[in-house]
Design a protein around this nucleic acid. Structure first.
Lengths: 128, 128
DNA sequence: TTTATATATGATTATATGATCATGTTTTGA
DNA sequence: TCAAAACATGATCATATAATCATATATAAA
């Protein structure tokens, strides 16, 4: 992996003198890092959980599916704001939707999502 | 919890007509939601993972502790940029630091962090 | 005690992003 | 077929934020 992975090229201009000493450590880390592209995707993924509104939506949907107006009522936010975030979450496959007449119901598109919430929440609670 | 938790007050002006029908669902969700304050903290926590640079730093430190210049070499970024992000991560207790002469080593401040990375990465991989 | 190295940080700037407003689309019911 | 309800979306704007530059601090070595 390390050979094909262009994540690490060489110490830049700012490389410090200690570099030689830690070179082995750096290579080891480099070998255990995912590909740059994957890390970018992963950051993109976490970013979705990093906004109050989206996180509330995600958590709500982790309990049960809800329609847009339910979410508006729950979050006390404008329908437009909620819809925009739902769009973002749908494009990134965090949620899916199904229409029932005029109403559109949203749900988590994936069971892993719940695990993500859990592990973060646990961390928070064990630190209080 | 629901009674003290001011997360949900009432349907706003934009409450839809379906509201009555879903009221029970909303209350159920509301009961299973963490406190607003906790959700805000949780979003803050995830936000830290939602940036390429920070995520790379976190992942690298999940392998082993590294000094600032190691991270600069690994990320191919200016020392200033790396230090600024390290500061953010330290203030939020994602990482801790120890000084050894002129060199400052950073490490994850918590073993949970690794779990967070894992669960996200798994999700990503199972979706490819 | 100078000088150089490693890191930290304040100020600035360019960019990203989230809420809002206005309006468009879809579906139901009169 | 017309109107209203539920939702989607483009444009705009204010704010947040990440990188950079310049500079400060801390430690070691000469």
């Amino acid at each position: 992996m390390a050979e094909k992975n262009p994540f690490f090229t060489a110490a830049g201009d700012e490389g410090c003198a200690v570099y030689g000493i830690h070179e082995r450590a750096i290579r080891s880390v480099q070998d255990q890092m995912p590909w740059q592209e994957d890390l970018d995707k992963l950051a993109e993924f976490y970013r979705l959980f990093g906004d109050k509104t989206r996180l509330k939506i995600i958590w709500a949907l982790s309990v049960c599916e809800m329609c847009v107006c339910d979410l508006c009522a729950l979050l006390q936010m404008r329908q437009s704001a909620v819809s925009h975030q739902l769009r973002t979450l749908k494009l990134t496959r965090i949620v899916r939707s199904r229409r029932e007449g005029k109403v559109v119901f949203y749900a988590l598109d994936d069971d892993h999502i719940r695990n993500v919430l859990e592990v973060g929440y646990k961390h928070l609670k064990e630190r209080e």
